[in-house]
Design a protein around this nucleic acid. Structure first.
Lengths: 347, 347
DNA sequence: ATTATAATTGACAACGTTACCAATTAGAAC
DNA sequence: GTTCTAATTGGTAACGTTGTCAATTATAAT
C-alpha cells in the first residue's frame, strides 16, 4: 500500500525565489499554463487565470527577466552611452529618454565614456552582451570598431545630439552648422569685428568642433574672420571660461566678442569680466551655447543658443519605443530639432 | 553509399550571433572547454587556450550575459533608483557610482521615480526581476512594500543621500540634522532674528523635511524661532525661489533671512531681490543648500552648505564593489560624510 | 446527431551558459 | 615499473522561461 506523499511543498531551502513551477504546483496547472496567464496570452479561461493569479500572489511570484530574455532572444534593456553625467547636457537627455520610456517595461542601462572614444567602444561591446533591445548613443562620431559592432546589431540605434554627418540608423539632434552660423551672423549683425572662440575638452566631442568650424566659415563669409581661438584640454568649467578669456585678451587685446563652446565657459568668462571691471558687452561681448535655465535668470542675461536637450532625449525615447513596438518607421531617419538664439544682454 | 556532409558550417542563416558551440566546433574542442577558456578558468593547457581564443577571435564571439546570468543566478547589473536626472544632485551621484564601477563589469540600470513614492516601488519591483547584483536607492524613506521586497533581496543595498534614520543595509550620506543646525547657528550667529524657510517638491523627499525640522528646532533652541515658511508644491526652480521669497515678504515684511531647501531656490531668490532692489544681505540674507559650483562663482557668492554629491556616489559604488567581490564588511554600515558650510556674501 | 472550427490546456524542446561529476592523461613518489 | 595525485578535458543536466506542436474540450455549423 502506498503512502501519499505531499510533493511540491518543499520546506527545505529557506526562501528560494518562487518560479513558475512553484506557481503551477500550487495552483494545480501546468507550468506552461501558468506562464500563459502571467504573460497575458490569449485564450485563457477565467478559472485558470484566477487560480494561477491567486497562487502567484500568494507566493509572491515575479517573472524572471533573465530566463525570459534568454528564451525570447530580446531583452527589455536600452543601452544608453553618454560621455558623462556631471554635465549640464546629458542628464537632461537621459531624463527625456527615461520619461519617454516610463510607460514601458524598458529599462535604461547607462554607460559613461568620460569623453574617451576608446571607452565608448569598450562599454558598448560590454553592453551588447546583454542583448539590448535598442542602443542610444551620443553624437555621430564613433570608432570603426564601434560601427562594425553596431552593424550587426538588430535593434534600433539612435544617435542623439547632432545631425550633421552620417547617421547609422536614426538621429535626433540639432544642427551644429546652424548653431555656428546663427551665432556668427548674430555677432556680425551687431557689428563686432574682432571675434574669438573658446572651446574645451580638446574638442573631443566632435560636435563642438563642427560648430566652431561652421562659426569660423560663416564669419569668413561675412567678412569678419575669426581673430583667435583657445581650446582648453580639460573639462568645461567656469574657471576654464575665465582662463580662456584672459589668455585670448592677452594675445589679442582688441577682441570685441567671444563665442564659447557652452554656457559654463561663457558664464565663467562673464564673472571674470565682471571681476576685472571689463564691461560686457561694452568692452567685450560674450555668447554661449546650450541655454541653461540659469543663464536666463542672471543679470546680464547671457546671449546663447538654446538646445532642446530634454526634448531630444524624449524624442529619441519615443523613437525607440515605436521601433520596438514594431511600428513602421514613418518619420525621417533624421529628426532635426529647432535651435533658438536667445539674444541676451551680453552681446 | 553515404555522401559526406559537412556539418557545423551552417550557411543558412545570414548572421546569427556566434555562440560557444560555434567556437567549440571551429576549434575542435568541447563546448565546456571553450567556456573554460573564455572565462579564464584554472587548469587550461596553453594549446587549448590558443585554439579557442583564436577561433573566438575569428568568428567574433562575445559571451552571452543573459545565459550566463541565468545559469549563474547572479547578474552584473546594479539597480540605481533616483528621483530625477534634471536636477543638480543626482547626476553627480550617478557619475560617482559610474566612476567607482568603471573598472568592473558591473553596469548601472537606471530608474527615475519623479519623486513619486509609489513609483519607486514599481520601478524597484521591475528591476528586481533582473536579479541585480546590488541595489542603490536614494534616501532612507521607502514604502513598506519596498522594504518588504528588499528584505529578501540577497545583494548589498546602499541608500545614498542621508544618514538620519533606519538603514536597511548600508547608507552613504550626510546628516540632515547637522545641515539644519549648521545653517541655523550661522544665521543666529550673524544676528538675524526674523528667519524664514522656503522648500519645494511639497517636501516629498523626506530628507529636506528632516533638514527643515532640524533647522527649526535649532533656531528655537537659539531663541530665534522660525517666523514662517513657504513650501512650493512643484519642482525646485529659480522662479520658485522668487515666488517663495515674494510670498514670505508679503506676509512677513520684517523677515531678515531665508534658508532655502537648495541652491536653485536661493539663487532665484537672489536674482529676484536684485531685480527688486532688495539689498542682499542688507535687507535680507539668503542661504542655500548643496553648494553648486556656480553659486561660488557669482557675485555675491551664495552662503550655502556644500554636499559631497559625487563623493557619495563614488563611495556607494566602492561599497557595492567590495561587497560583490565578497570582501568582508569592514566599515561601519553607515558612512557619514562631511558637510561644509561656505560663508558667502549673502548672509 | 455529426462534422468542422475554435478555445483551452499540456508536453517537449530550446535559448547559451556553467556547475557538477566522470574520464583520461601526465607527472610524482615509491 | 607501479601506485597515487594533479592536471586537463569532456558529458550531462540545469538555470526559468516560452515557441511550437499536439491533444483535448467546447462551440458552431451542417
Amino acid at each position: 500500500m502506498l503512502v501519499a506523499v505531499i510533493e511540491g511543498m518543499r520546506m527545505d531551502e529557506p526562501s528560494r525565489k518562487p518560479t513558475l513551477k512553484d506557481v503551477a504546483a500550487l495552483s494545480g496547472v501546468s507550468v506552461i499554463s501558468a506562464s500563459r496567464v502571467m504573460r497575458d496570452a490569449p485564450n485563457i479561461s477565467p478559472e485558470l487565470r484566477q487560480k494561477v493569479e491567486s497562487a502567484a500572489r500568494e507566493i509572491g511570484y515575479q517573472r524572471n527577466r533573465i530566463a525570459r530574455s534568454l528564451r525570447g532572444q530580446a531583452t527589455d534593456l536600452v543601452a544608453v552611452v553618454v560621455p558623462s553625467m556631471s554635465n549640464n547636457v546629458f542628464p537632461n537627455i537621459v531624463d527625456g529618454i527615461g520619461d519617454a520610456l516610463s510607460d514601458t517595461s524598458l529599462r535604461l542601462v547607462l554607460g559613461m565614456t568620460k569623453y574617451v572614444d576608446r571607452s565608448e567602444e569598450a562599454i558598448l561591446r560590454d553592453m551588447l552582451t546583454w542583448n539590448p533591445a535598442s542602443v542610444i548613443l551620443s553624437g555621430l562620431e564613433h570608432s570603426d570598431a564601434t560601427k562594425e559592432m553596431l552593424s550587426d546589431f538588430s535593434g534600433p540605434i539612435v544617435e542623439v545630439m547632432d545631425v550633421d554627418g552620417d547617421v547609422i540608423d536614426y538621429a535626433v539632434g540639432v544642427s551644429m552648422d546652424e548653431a555656428g552660423c546663427l551665432i556668427a551672423r548674430h555677432l556680425a549683425d551687431r557689428g563686432y569685428q574682432r571675434i574669438a572662440y573658446v572651446g574645451a575638452w580638446g574638442e573631443r566631442p566632435k560636435r563642438s568642433l563642427k560648430r566652431r568650424l561652421a562659426f569660423e566659415s560663416e564669419l569668413k563669409n561675412l567678412g569678419v574672420p575669426l581673430v583667435g581661438s583657445f581650446i582648453l584640454d580639460e573639462a568645461s568649467s567656469f574657471n576654464g571660461g575665465a582662463i580662456g578669456t584672459k589668455s585670448l585678451l592677452a594675445q589679442h587685446p582688441d577682441i570685441d566678442a567671444i563665442f564659447f563652446a557652452n554656457d559654463d565657459l561663457a558664464l565663467g568668462a562673464l564673472f571674470y569680466c565682471q571681476s576685472q571691471g571689463i564691461a560686457v558687452p561694452g568692452d567685450i561681448a560674450l555668447a554661449g551655447y546650450n541655454g541653461l535655465e540659469m543663464c536666463q535668470s542672471i543679470t546680464p542675461r547671457l546671449t546663447t543658443i538654446v538646445t532642446p536637450r530634454y526634448e531630444m532625449g524624449r524624442v529619441a525615447g519615443e523613437l525607440v519605443k515605436q521601433q520596438i513596438r514594431g511600428e513602421p518607421p514613418v518619420q525621417d531617419r533624421v529628426i532635426r530639432m529647432e535651435l533658438e538664439l536667445v539674444e541676451g544682454e551680453t552681446t
